[in-house]
């Protein structure tokens, strides 16, 4: 293999490409429902909540490589908490997300300060902006497992989830278990966000959720097509961005997001009338 695909011969680039494509596709798939429900801010909120989980793991002496397993349950709990507040109907989604994420992030900062100075060193920049090029074979297995489980759950519940997104009352009348689906979507969002944090970091992960879905929504005329298009944009945008970052020798996470932003701009120009 030669020419512009040459980077794929490099093992770390191959792993980054696979992880980026899977995470890009997963975030986009979840993002279709998150964006349609007006919860775009939740990606950012849960990423900040994940920081609390990461800090908790560090306090417990867990290495940064295995931090996902502490951040996952922590972030899922925060997501379910947001869901509970939303279902009580007393607060809007952005308010609930804002409160939970701010509290979790503050907790993270507090816990980081409490940990022993003898513990493993943490590069905060890596946590904030991700390190897709440092994806290990173990990380790739985690991403793949999360990818398969999330895809299967979404596939089995897709038609019900779409109905509940359009109108929860009408869906409930048709026998759809709306509350269970709401909690499942939030929990899956948390899981995917935690995995994605490893690739593009806390600061940029919400773009992975929002941009492909928002781009596809401008072009697609049915929820099925919007979902397929969003996943394609997530996968292709991630791959192109990674290649561009390799050749330009610039930050990969940021380049991926800028590529997705470029696709959004194009869709804006050519969106359906």
């Amino acid at each position: 293999m030669d020419g512009w695909l040459e980077p794929l011969l490099v093992p770390f680039m191959m792993r980054a490409m696979i992880a980026g494509a899977v995470v890009g596709g997963l975030c986009a798939m979840i993002g279709v429902f998150v964006v349609q429900r007006g919860l775009s801010f939740i990606g950012d909120g849960l990423a900040h909540a994940a920081f609390g989980g990461i800090a908790l793991g560090l306090l417990l002496g867990v290495s940064l490589e295995r931090m996902t397993w502490v951040a996952l349950p922590f972030t899922v709990l925060i997501a379910l908490g947001i869901g509970y507040v939303l279902r009580r109907g007393s607060l809007r989604g952005d308010v609930a997300t804002g409160v939970f994420s701010a509290v979790s992030f503050a907790l993270g900062v507090l816990l980081l300060g409490l940990r022993s100075t003898d513990g493993p060193q943490v590069n905060v920049e890596t946590v904030l902006f991700g390190s897709i090029l440092a994806i290990s074979p173990d990380d790739l297995i985690t991403v793949s497992v999360v990818g398969v489980v999330t895809t299967l759950l979404m596939a089995f519940t897709w038609t019900k989830l779409a109905y509940a997104t359009f109108d929860p009352e009408l869906a409930a009348l048709s026998g759809v278990k709306v509350a269970a689906l709401d909690y499942m979507l939030l929990a899956l969002t948390a899981v995917v966000i935690v995995v994605a944090v490893k690739t593009v970091g806390i600061a940029l992960v919400s773009s992975f959720v929002v941009i492909p879905a928002a781009t596809a929504k401008m072009v697609g005329r049915s929820i099925g097509r919007v979902a397929l298009l969003a996943v394609a944009i997530g996968v292709v945008g991630s791959s192109i961005g990674l290649m561009l970052s390799y050749y330009a020798d610039v930050a990969s996470g940021a380049t991926i997001i800028l590529t997705l932003g470029g696709m959004f701009g194009l869709a804006l120009l050519f969106k359906k009338k």
Partner: peptide
């Protein structure tokens, strides 16, 4: 949610099936 990407026929068939 009237911004949902769908046609009238989708709404009617969703009611028939109980799923989208």
């Amino acid at each position: 949610d009237m911004t949902f990407p769908a046609r009238s026929i989708d709404l009617i068939v969703a009611s028939m099936r109980g799923s989208w």
